[in-house]
Simulated scan of single mutants.
Amino acid sequence: MAVQHPVAEANEQSPFGTLSPTEFYAKHQVTHSSDYITNSRGFKLFTQWWTPLPPTKTIGCVAVVHGFTGESSWFVQLTSILFAKHGFAVCAIDHQGHGFSDGLDNLMYHIPDINPVVDDCMQYFKTFRENHAHNLPAFLYSESLGGAIALYITLRQKGAWDGLILNGAMCGISAKFKPPWPLEHLLFVVAAVVPTWRVVPTRGSLPEVSF
Rank of each mutant, 00 (worst) to 15 (best):
F128N: 06
G172P: 03
E208T: 13
K57T: 15
H95Y: 03
P179D: 04
L187P: 01
L45C: 09
E71C: 07
F16Y: 15
L78C: 09
V30G: 01
I173D: 07
C121S: 02
N115G: 02
H185C: 08
S14E: 09
S210K: 14
T51D: 03
T69F: 00
D102S: 11
G42F: 11
P6Y: 06
L107V: 05
R41I: 02
G163Q: 09
M1T: 09
W181T: 13
S73Y: 03
N39C: 05
F188W: 12
S40W: 02
L164H: 08
S34F: 10
A63G: 03
Q123T: 08
L19I: 01
G67M: 10
K57E: 15
F16G: 03
V194H: 03
V3T: 09
L78K: 07
T22Q: 15
I114W: 13
Q13F: 07
P182T: 09
P112W: 11
I165H: 06
G67V: 05
Q4N: 11
F43A: 05
P182F: 06
A26C: 03
N11D: 14
T47I: 14
V190R: 11
K158R: 14
G70E: 10
S174L: 10
H5C: 11
Q13A: 11
C61P: 00
S72L: 12
S14F: 07
